[in-house]
Simulated scan of single mutants.
Amino acid sequence: MYELFKTKASAVGAEVHRVGGKIEAVELIVSLLKDENVVDLPGCRAVWAEGTFLNGIDRGALKELPGLSFEVTRERAAQAKVGISEMSFAVADTGSLVQDQSAAADRLASSLTDIHIALVPSANIVPDKVSLFSRISPRTSRYIAFITGPSRTADIERVLTIGVHGPQRLVIIFVDGLEGVSR
């Protein structure tokens, strides 16, 4: 299912990676932040929304990265270049990510920044929406968001513009070994 998801997501402009565990995921994220010149200046910062992925991660080393904050507020996210958040599921046949965005930090990190880095447990790739809806409950999932590729819109003249209403770039990182993790 990973290959189908990758094909579908790549077709709409997302970048898709798969790593063997948390350590490799953190290394990739640090590399991406450095490549994007994340520093402690407005428009150059990064925000990382709290989630289960961060359990057991040495935040001390991450906090040494200039411009990275784990405190996600509207102001910080609006001034951030990169937002990092966890996704609950990935739907293979559409290349879509699914996130319970009940927490405001998840919405802010995934929609106000220019670049969104999405972390997804590899085990949470589902084949289609029918499979997805059999795994989520309306009682516990109050605010479900589907994300398919970078933000895009077209005006009345059908001119496609990327990033007007959200991130211009979507980087998806599937992390093996996070079985059973969902938000």
Rank of each mutant, 00 (worst) to 15 (best):
L4Q: 13
S10D: 13
S10Q: 13
A11Q: 10
A11K: 02
E15N: 09
V16Y: 00
V19L: 06
E24C: 04
A25G: 08
A25L: 11
V26I: 14
E27M: 09
E27Q: 13
V30M: 13
L33P: 08
K34H: 12
D35F: 07
E36L: 14
V38E: 01
V39D: 01
G43K: 08
A49N: 09
N55C: 08
G56P: 09
D58V: 01
G60M: 01
L62I: 05
L65W: 01
E75W: 06
A77N: 07
A78V: 00
Q79V: 06
A80K: 04
K81I: 03
K81D: 06
V82S: 04
G83P: 07
G83D: 06
M87E: 10
M87V: 01
S88E: 13
V91K: 09
T94R: 08
L97T: 03
L97S: 00
Q99W: 06
A103E: 14
A105F: 08
L108Y: 11
A109V: 00
L112I: 05
L112H: 04
I117W: 09
I117T: 11
P127Q: 05
D128F: 03
V130P: 02
F133Q: 07
F133C: 10
R135K: 15
I136A: 06
T140D: 12
S141Q: 13
Y143G: 00
I144D: 05
F146I: 03
F146R: 06
I147F: 10
T148N: 09
S151G: 14
R152N: 12
T153Y: 05
I156W: 05
R158K: 15
V159N: 13
V159L: 14
G163F: 09
Q168N: 07
L170G: 03
V171T: 07
I172G: 05
I173R: 01
I173C: 01
G177W: 11
E179Q: 08
G180T: 08
S182F: 15
